[in-house]
Amino acid sequence: MGLFTVAEARDELERLMPVLDELLAIRADAAELAASLAPGGPQTGLGGLPELKAAQARLDELMASVQQTGAELKGFAPLLIDFPAELDGVPVLLCWIEGDRTLSWYHRADLGFAGRRPLP
């Protein structure tokens, strides 16, 4: 897939927000279910192994739907998504992390998250 403009990435992120919100909720359910299935684990009203397998399958579907947009899923907990782009001729990744409601950050492709800066 090609590069995103900042406007295209922001539009795509807005379309993805319901998917990301569902992903966060199911990730939490899956973590709780997994903990409850461990020996001596806490009881949960969410179910058991069948529900955990269903949650894991749904997580896979949601993550695939994110990646089908051309965005790169870089982290799962916290959720981290990069949109390949160019700023002033330099390859960058427009960077969204769980908790952000807008796309406001980027980093050079060669620097990674540590080089994250606010979008101009």
Rank of each mutant, 00 (worst) to 15 (best):
F83E: 05
D88T: 07
A54R: 05
L59M: 14
I26H: 11
A54N: 05
A71L: 03
A85D: 12
D29T: 05
A85Q: 08
L80W: 08
G45C: 03
G40L: 11
P50M: 11
A85V: 06
A55M: 03
S65C: 08
E32D: 15
P39K: 10
R27N: 11
E86Q: 15
E86N: 06
G47Y: 07
I81E: 03
A71G: 05
P91K: 05
F83P: 02
I81S: 05
G70T: 13
Q67F: 00
A34F: 07
A38Q: 12
L87C: 01
V66I: 15
V66W: 08
A35F: 11
E32Q: 15
L46D: 10
P91C: 03
A30V: 07
I81Y: 03
L33Y: 05
V66P: 07
Q68A: 15
I26M: 09
L79C: 11
A31S: 15
A57I: 02
L79G: 02
D29W: 04
L73M: 08
G47W: 08
Q68F: 06
D88Q: 10
E61V: 13
P78C: 12
L49A: 15
A71E: 01
E72S: 04
L37Q: 14
L52K: 02
A55E: 02
L79Y: 06
D88P: 01
L33I: 11
A57D: 13
E51L: 11
E32T: 15
